[in-house]
Deep mutational scan, measured.
Amino acid sequence: MGFKLLSKLLVYLTASIMAIASPLAFSVDSSGEYPTVSEIPVGEVRLYQIADGVWSHIATQSFDGAVYPSNGLIVRDGDELLLIDTAWGAKNTAALLAEIEKQIGLPVTRAVSTHFHDDRVGGVDVLRAAGVATYASPSTRRLAEVEGNEIPTHSLEGLSSSGDAVRFGPVELFYPGAAHSTDNLIVYVPSASVLYGGCAIYELSRTSAGNVADADLAEWPTSIERIQQHYPEAQFVIPGHGLPGGLDLLKHTTNVVKAHTNRSVVE
C-alpha cells in the first residue's frame, strides 16, 4: 500500500471513529477524501466538511520552486461564519470567499490569524475590503508590521502568557507558548472536538522541520505538551499544512522538532 493511500485511509478511519463516538456532533463529509496538494491548482481553494458547521479550507501556493498546501478553518456561528487564517495570499483568499459563498452561503463576518507569517495573514486586506472584521493577538499584529505583512485590524486580548485561553464565538483560542513562531495560536472547536494546530503542528508525513527561522526550538516541545494537557479530548487535529489526523500529530511534531534540534547540535 502506497504512503499517500495509507495517509488518506488514516484520515478516513479517524473521521469514521469520530462519527461513531459522537453521532450528534459529527456529520463528516462523505463526498470524498481530504484534498491534497496535487489536486488543488494554485489560485483555487477546496472546502472539506469535518463536522456539522465545521470545515477546513485548503489552498496551495508556490514557494521556492515548489507547491505547498495550506489549511485553515471555518466555523459556523449562528447565521454567520468565523474564518481562521487566510488562504495564503490575496488571490487565494478572494477564491476562498467565493467558494464559501458557493458552498455554504453564509457571510464571513470575523477572521482570526493564528500567527504573523504570510500563509496566515496574506489576504487580510481582501477580507477587510469584503467587510470582514480581522483579528490577531497584539504580538501577531506587531510582528506582521515588522515583517511588512498585512496586519489584522483588531487585537485579541488575554493571550499574552503561555497557557492563556479565551473564548471567541464558537471557538476557544489558546496560546501554548512559542513553537513554530513566538505568537502562534491554537484554535479548538469544543462542539466538535476539532483542534486546529496551525503551523505549530505537523502532518504525519512530514519528517523535516522546514521553516524554523522564527521558531523557538527549545520551547516548542513544552508548548505541545500544554496543548495535549489542555485538549486531551480532541479527536480531529488539523495541521497548518497537509493531512489531518488525531492527537498523534502532536507527538510526531515533537519528535521531528527534537530530531532537528539534535542534528543542529551535532553539526
Score class of each variant (00 low, 15 high):
M1N: 04
G2Y: 15
K4P: 06
K4W: 06
K4M: 12
L6Y: 15
S7L: 08
S7G: 08
S7R: 09
K8V: 15
L9V: 14
L9D: 13
L9S: 12
L10F: 14
L10E: 13
V11H: 15
L13F: 14
T14H: 15
T14A: 08
I17T: 12
M18W: 08
A19V: 15
A19N: 14
A21N: 14
A21M: 14
A25V: 13
F26Q: 14
S27T: 12
V28Q: 09
V28L: 09
S30Q: 13
S30K: 15
Y34P: 08
P35Q: 08
P35L: 08
P35T: 08
T36A: 14
T36F: 11
T36N: 15
T36K: 13
T36C: 07
S38R: 10
S38T: 10
E39N: 14
E39D: 13
P41T: 12
R46C: 06
R46A: 09
L47A: 04
Q49S: 11
I50Q: 05
I50N: 06
I50L: 09
A51M: 07
A51K: 07
G53Y: 07
V54P: 02
W55F: 06
H57Y: 07
I58E: 05
Q61R: 15
Q61H: 07
F63C: 07
F63K: 07
D64W: 09
A66Q: 15
A66H: 15
V67S: 15
V67Q: 15
Y68C: 06
P69N: 15
S70M: 06
G72R: 02
I74V: 09
D77N: 07
D77P: 00
L81E: 01
L81T: 05
L83A: 04
L83K: 00
I84Q: 00
D85G: 01
D85N: 04
D85M: 00
T86Q: 01
T86Y: 03
T86V: 02
W88M: 03
G89F: 03
K91W: 10
K91M: 15
A94Y: 15
A94C: 05
A95W: 04
A95E: 10
L97S: 03
L97H: 04
I100C: 01
I100K: 00
E101Y: 11
E101Q: 14
E101V: 09
K102I: 13
K102T: 11
I104K: 01
V108M: 04
V108R: 03
T109P: 06
R110Q: 12
R110L: 08
A111K: 02
A111Q: 07
T114Y: 03
T114I: 02
T114P: 02
H115E: 00
F116V: 04
H117E: 00
H117I: 00
D119F: 01
D119Y: 04
G122M: 11
G123M: 03
G123D: 05
V124G: 05
V124W: 03
V124H: 05
V124F: 05
D125L: 06
D125P: 04
L127G: 01
R128T: 12
A129F: 08
A133V: 12
T134A: 04
T134Y: 00
T134W: 01
T134C: 03
Y135H: 08
Y135S: 01
Y135C: 05
A136P: 04
S137T: 15
S139F: 04
S139E: 13
R141E: 02
R141F: 02
R141P: 05
R142S: 13
R142D: 11
L143F: 09
L143G: 03
L143K: 07
A144N: 03
A144R: 09
A144M: 03
E145N: 11
E147M: 14
E147S: 13
N149A: 13
N149Q: 10
E150Q: 06
I151A: 06
P152Q: 00
T153M: 11
L156Q: 03
L156M: 07
L156P: 06
G158C: 05
L159F: 07
D164N: 14
D164K: 09
A165P: 08
R167W: 11
R167N: 12
F168C: 05
V171P: 02
V171T: 05
L173A: 03
L173P: 08
L173I: 14
Y175V: 01
Y175T: 01
P176I: 01
P176C: 00
A179D: 04
H180G: 00
S181V: 02
S181G: 02
T182P: 14
T182V: 12
N184G: 02
L185V: 10
V189Y: 05
V189M: 03
P190D: 08
P190V: 06
P190E: 10
S191W: 14
A192N: 07
L195N: 01
Y196E: 01
G197M: 01
G198Y: 05
G198R: 03
C199Y: 07
C199R: 03
A200H: 04
A200C: 05
A200T: 06
A200M: 09
Y202L: 15
E203A: 07
E203C: 04
E203T: 05
S205T: 10
T207V: 13
T207H: 14
T207Q: 14
A209F: 08
A209Q: 09
G210Q: 07
V212R: 05
W220T: 00
W220P: 02
P221N: 08
S223L: 01
S223K: 01
S223V: 06
I224H: 01
E225A: 13
E225S: 11
R226C: 01
R226E: 03
I227H: 02
I227S: 04
I227C: 01
Q229M: 14
H230N: 13
P232M: 08
P232S: 10
E233Q: 13
E233D: 13
A234I: 08
F236A: 10
I238C: 00
P239N: 01
P239S: 03
G240N: 05
L243V: 15
P244V: 06
G245E: 02
G246N: 13
G246K: 11
L247Q: 12
L247H: 12
L249E: 00
L250G: 00
L250R: 01
K251A: 12
K251P: 14
H252S: 03
T253M: 02
T254I: 13
V257A: 04
V257T: 05
V257N: 04
K258R: 13
K258Y: 09
K258L: 11
A259W: 09
H260V: 12
N262D: 13
N262T: 12
R263L: 14
R263G: 15
S264C: 05
E267S: 06
E267V: 05
